[in-house]
Design a protein around this nucleic acid. Structure first.
Lengths: 114, 114
DNA sequence: TATATTTGTAAGCAAATACTTACATAATGG
DNA sequence: CCATTATGTAAGTATTTGCTTACAAATATA
């Protein structure tokens, strides 16, 4: 079995994103979270399981209650990935501009104009 | 039918994330993209379809080739969501600190110490 | 014009997902 | 100790996903 969870898959589900947004504001126990949704408690429990499995949430047991706490840093891995894509994209734009610049200069030398 | 695509679902798949990372560097036509993966060309074509359906990629037709261009701004919507969560989280931390501060002050008044 | 190239898409299928109901377990409170 | 509360988890199911092969269509090229 040994399922590999990852953050991207975790935040793909809208309900899980709502859960994340909810416990960002305040740690909550499972029933309190479930109260905010139409889905059944077990459904929410399973969502929480996914979130813990990929390290987005940790559980603090307090008596019979289990408080769900968001690990915000884990969420920032997504931002990092986006930032990396953005870096590649900017570099591509820059080199394209250089290229057009060179093209223009060369054309001027040859007396060509657009 | 009318499938609703969204970016979160789009980036959930590792192959699609690789495609995004690839065309961030440079626009590529479909076959060129497919060459970078083990999966079949139709499989990649279907991934591209998902990416266009949620606005992450646009197609520039050039003769019989179709160049896939990344719409980097769309990707930033994800960052925005993460940032919003982060804002909530920071606000929660701040108010928790205020609370502990108040508690400490009160305890000092009553002569209590830990 | 005949052929090769680039692509979309349908059909079929195995696996994963998200949900439900039903039951089990453990802590709390009288 | 018994009832309540908070939760996990199993079983079952409908839907979605990601892939394949096969075929179609449109453009380019010899």
């Amino acid at each position: 079995m040994e399922k590999r969870r990852d953050i991207y898959q975790a935040i793909a589900d809208p309900t899980r994103r709502e859960i994340i947004s909810l416990i960002a504001r305040q740690s909550m126990n499972l029933n309190a979270i479930a109260d905010n949704f139409e889905a059944s408690r077990p459904a929410i429990s399973q969502h929480i399981k996914v979130l813990t499995e990929c390290g987005l949430v940790i559980i603090r047991q307090q008596g019979r209650e289990r408080y769900c706490e968001l690990k915000i840093d884990k969420l920032k891995e997504v931002t990092s990935w986006v930032e990396e894509c953005n870096k590649y994209w900017n570099a591509a734009i820059d080199s394209m501009e250089d290229y057009l610049q060179q093209l223009q200069t060369k054309n001027k030398k040859h007396g060509k104009q657009q």
